[in-house]
Simulated assay, not measured.
Amino acid sequence: MAIGSFAPISMANASSLKTLSYQDYIPLQRTQLRNQFVSFPLFNPDLGSLKSVLFSLTGEVEGSVKIENGDAAAAFITASLGADVSVRYPDGRELLAVLPAASVSENFLAGDGDLDFIGSSVKTFTGLRNTKTEQLILNDGFDFLIGLGDINLPVFGDGKSQATGAGNLLAGFQTFAGAKLKVVYEYEPLKRTITPEPINKKVPEPSLSIAALTVVGMGLWLKNCRLAGKTENFVANFRDRKPKLY
Results as ranks from 00 to 15, higher is better:
136 L>Q: 06
112 D>Q: 03
142 F>N: 02
12 A>R: 14
17 L>W: 03
68 E>R: 05
15 S>W: 02
32 Q>A: 14
107 N>T: 09
109 L>I: 06
107 N>V: 02
60 E>R: 10
129 R>A: 03
113 G>Q: 08
121 S>H: 03
73 A>E: 14
116 D>R: 00
44 N>S: 12
33 L>A: 08
49 S>R: 14
98 V>E: 13
47 L>I: 10
130 N>L: 01
132 K>Q: 12
95 L>W: 11
85 V>M: 01
133 T>M: 07
133 T>G: 03
93 R>K: 09
51 K>V: 00
125 F>M: 08
89 Y>D: 08
139 N>F: 03
74 A>Q: 06
114 D>E: 13
138 L>P: 01
95 L>A: 05
91 D>G: 11
41 P>K: 14
127 G>C: 00
82 G>P: 00
26 I>W: 07
132 K>H: 07
35 N>D: 15
9 I>T: 14
132 K>W: 07
135 Q>T: 12
35 N>Y: 13
23 Q>T: 14
123 K>E: 15
89 Y>V: 05
9 I>W: 09
21 S>I: 06
67 I>N: 10
82 G>T: 05
20 L>P: 00
80 S>D: 15
117 F>C: 02
57 L>M: 05
133 T>K: 05
97 A>H: 00
58 T>M: 03
113 G>A: 06
54 L>C: 01
138 L>M: 12
58 T>E: 13
73 A>M: 02
101 A>S: 09
67 I>L: 11
144 F>W: 04
22 Y>Q: 07
73 A>F: 05
142 F>C: 01
88 R>V: 04
11 M>H: 13
33 L>R: 02
90 P>D: 15
15 S>V: 09
108 F>A: 03
137 I>H: 07
82 G>K: 09
43 F>P: 00
120 S>E: 15
90 P>I: 09
87 V>N: 01
75 A>S: 13
82 G>S: 14
136 L>D: 12
22 Y>R: 06
134 E>W: 03
62 E>R: 14
33 L>K: 03
90 P>R: 09
37 F>G: 05
28 L>R: 11
76 F>Y: 06
60 E>V: 06
78 T>N: 08
28 L>M: 04
92 G>H: 03
53 V>S: 08
10 S>T: 13
12 A>E: 15
77 I>F: 09
109 L>M: 04
57 L>C: 10
56 S>L: 08
81 L>R: 08
117 F>G: 03
95 L>Y: 07
27 P>Q: 14
35 N>Q: 12
37 F>Q: 11
27 P>D: 15
22 Y>D: 02
133 T>Y: 12
34 R>K: 10
28 L>I: 04
103 S>T: 02
69 N>V: 12
41 P>Y: 12
135 Q>M: 10
129 R>C: 02
96 L>T: 08
97 A>F: 01
122 V>G: 04
144 F>P: 06
116 D>L: 02
134 E>G: 01
144 F>Q: 07
118 I>N: 01
72 A>Q: 07
